[in-house]
């Protein structure tokens, strides 16, 4: 994944904060924020994940003219396996959590907190991959990716480490 331009905007922060049920005014109220230690609206700690909105190749968003694997007339527009294969053929390096897979771990290191007006880039590199046997889901295939978010001045602002897992079978409940 490479995101060339991730503009951090106040309305997006507001929507994101609402979606996680966080009504802290630091995420929406400029005049409140001006009187706090941080001095301006900032983004919630997990907001960097929303960079997916600005990744042109992000595979978990339906795109114009392409088949989508969710239901339409049938339960699946395109089989998940086919989609995973298509994705693996593409040059685009996937983030840790992939179609047919689950998100296993997520880590953020904050060099500073994001705020409206930041224009970020994000560069993702693959990390380690490993396997583990699980009673509830068979063989688990883990893969790690590291994403560096930099601001308009080239400064590193957030480093994210994501681990995705593909399970051999559906997790027993």
């Amino acid at each position: 994944m490479a995101v060339e331009r991730f503009p951090v905007e106040a309305s997006h922060i507001l929507m994101f904060a609402r979606s996680i049920g966080d009504s802290n005014p630091i995420y929406s109220d400029e005049s409140h924020a001006a009187g706090t230690e941080v001095g301006s609206i900032i983004a919630p700690p997990t907001f960097a994940q929303a960079s997916a909105q600005f990744d042109p190749d992000y595979f978990l968003r339906p795109k114009d003219g392409q088949k989508w694997f969710g239901s339409g007339g049938t339960a699946s527009g395109t089989l998940v396996k086919d989609k995973a294969e298509d994705d693996s053929k593409s040059d685009d390096k996937k983030s840790g959590s992939s179609a047919g897979g689950l998100h296993a771990e997520q880590h953020f290191t904050y060099h500073r907190h994001l705020k409206p007006g930041d224009i970020l880039t994000a560069e993702t590199k693959p990390g380690e991959s490993w396997e583990k046997e699980s009673k509830r889901a068979g063989v688990l295939k883990f893969s790690e990716s590291i994403t560096e978010y930099r601001d308009q001045g080239g400064e590193l602002v957030v480093t994210a480490r994501s681990v995705g897992v593909v399970t051999e079978k559906v997790i027993e409940q």
Binding site: G21, D22, T46, Y110
Partner: peptide, 23 residues
């Protein structure tokens, strides 16, 4: 994200230097 709300309510806004989890 929701767990992060608990964290920032506890430690204050803009105070985290690291936050990592396993699902």
């Amino acid at each position: 994200g929701m767990t992060g709300r608990m964290l920032t309510n506890y430690v204050g806004d803009g105070r985290l230097t690291y936050y990592g989890v396993r699902f």
